[in-house]
Amino acid sequence: MTYEEHLDEVTTLITEKYDVADQAAIKMVMRAQADDFFSGHDDNPAICTLDRAHLDAKAVYKKYK
């Protein structure tokens, strides 16, 4: 998946796994992105996988909830 698709998937997973409203999940992902949480993903799209999206969703939720 592309970098943008990965961010969308992480956002969706946060809403589904943690019962977070769409807008709140978007804000979490945007904050993580601003903190360069996803910088490696942009440099190496090969790590933009569904498995990694699950791990990233958990990490982003824990850090930015």
Rank of each mutant, 00 (worst) to 15 (best):
I26P: 00
H54F: 11
S39K: 14
K62S: 11
M1T: 04
K17D: 06
S39Y: 15
A53I: 05
A21S: 12
V29P: 01
K58Q: 10
H41E: 10
Q33K: 07
A57N: 05
L7M: 06
R52Y: 10
T12D: 15
V10T: 01
D51W: 08
M1L: 01
D42I: 15
V60P: 00
M28H: 11
T11M: 04
K62R: 13
M28Q: 07
A59P: 05
H6E: 00
T12M: 12
L55E: 13
K58N: 04
D51Y: 06
T12E: 11
T15P: 04
A46N: 13
V20D: 04
I14S: 00
C48V: 03
D19G: 09
L50W: 09
E5D: 13
H54Y: 15
T11E: 13
K17Q: 08
Y61R: 00
A59C: 08
H41K: 09
P45N: 07
F38N: 06
Q23K: 09
N44W: 07
S39I: 12
L7D: 03
E16V: 12
V10N: 02
V20W: 01
M30L: 15
E9T: 11
I14R: 00
E5T: 01
D56I: 05
V20I: 07
I14C: 00
A46V: 14
Y64F: 02
G40N: 09
A57C: 10
R31G: 03
M30P: 03
F38D: 06
P45H: 02
D42R: 12
L50E: 14
T2K: 10
D56L: 08
K62N: 15
R31F: 13
T12G: 11
V60E: 01
Y18L: 04
L55G: 14
T49Y: 06
E5L: 11
A53L: 04
F38G: 06
L13F: 05
Y64K: 01
K17C: 04
T2H: 04
A57S: 10
K65D: 05
R31L: 12
D51F: 07
A24E: 09
F37A: 10
D36C: 07
I26C: 07
E5K: 13
D36T: 05
Q23E: 11
N44H: 11
M28K: 14
Y18V: 06
T49M: 02
A21V: 01
M1A: 11
D8P: 03
E9N: 06
S39H: 14
K17E: 07
Q23T: 11
A32K: 01
M1E: 02
I26D: 12
L50A: 15
Y61F: 10
Y3F: 15
G40W: 03
T15L: 01
T11C: 05
T12N: 06
M30W: 12
Y18K: 11
Y64H: 02
V29Q: 03
V60D: 01
L55Q: 14
A32R: 02
E4R: 13
E4I: 08
A21W: 00
D43Y: 15
R31S: 10
K63F: 08
K27W: 13
D35Y: 03
D19F: 14
A32M: 03
K17G: 03
E9W: 06
K65P: 03
D43N: 05
K62D: 15
V29W: 00
Q23Y: 09
Y64A: 02
T11V: 02
R52T: 14
